[in-house]
């Protein structure tokens, strides 16, 4: 049995590890941003729609780029920040770890001093919602499903012209919502496609530096919600 389990693990690892045709994080980001050249876009989109590895990689990339401390994480994040700052400044009572000695300490000292203030302020003033899947009311959690959002996510150079996601099997339509960070709705729409264009007036009204959220919900032929993307966060660089 133990051998069999090891065999299973090995086979699953092969099936779920990156293959030579899998996309790099840079390709996934370019695909999501719509900045990949067309032949590569078609190839990668076809690959992504059937590759659990690349779908997971894109999800992780989006989660990383949208990572904000949850309320239960804030204390630990503050503690880590304070400790790194103290080590970078290098007070006599603070032992520097070997790894940290390898850094350009002058630059890092300045950086962490600036960061100490930025993080403290940021944690207090800007609490973006968690990127979690809404639970299905009255249904077992195991039945919940998620849509892989493609774009926009993270910091952008310009206002996005559309919202895009990976098509959900069995979905008849999609309901899309654009929100402020306090969940106040700015715009909503329905579509049968896996992308929807943002109205020009709406795009023009997106202020640089202001974070926004969007979410897509897949619906079946009877109009029942069947999968969610979770809240996706993006902003335009100042």
């Amino acid at each position: 049995m133990g051998e069999a389990k090891a065999g299973e693990r090995s086979l699953l690892t092969k099936a779920l590890s990156a293959s030579e045709v899998c996309a790099t994080p840079f390709e996934l980001r370019s695909l999501a941003d719509g900045s990949l050249p067309e032949p590569a876009t078609a190839r990668l989109q076809a690959h992504l729609s059937g590759c659990p590895r690349c779908q997971t990689e894109l999800t992780l990339l989006n989660y990383f780029e949208n990572a904000v401390p949850r309320p239960d994480e804030e204390r630990a994040v503050r503690w880590i920040s304070a400790r790194l700052e103290a080590e970078a400044i290098g007070g006599p009572s603070v032992p520097r770890r070997p790894l940290f000695k390898a850094l350009n300490l002058a630059a890092f000292g300045l950086a962490f001093m600036a960061l100490g203030a930025a993080i403290t302020i940021g944690l207090r003033d800007r609490r973006a919602p968690e990127l979690t899947q809404p639970s299905l009311s009255g249904s077992p959690v195991l039945r919940s499903a998620a849509i892989t959002a493609l774009s926009p996510a993270g910091e952008l150079d310009a206002a996005p012209d559309s919202l895009r996601w990976v098509p959900q099997a069995g979905a008849a339509s999609y309901s899309v919502q654009l929100m402020e960070v306090d969940h106040a709705e700015l715009w909503n729409a329905e579509t049968r496609d896996a992308a929807i264009a943002l109205p020009l007036a709406l795009r023009a009204g997106i202020a640089p530096g202001k974070p926004l959220l969007w979410e897509v919900v897949a619906k079946d032929a009877d109009g029942r919600a069947m999968a969610w993307s979770g809240k996706q966060r993006f902003s335009i660089k100042r």
Binding site: N66, P69, I80, N104, A111, L115, I119, E155
Partner: peptide, 15 residues
């Protein structure tokens, strides 16, 4: 470098 850390530090710590 400071700007890079300022923009991305929180997400790395959180992650």
């Amino acid at each position: 470098l400071q700007e890079l850390f300022r923009r991305h530090y929180t997400r790395v710590v959180t992650w």
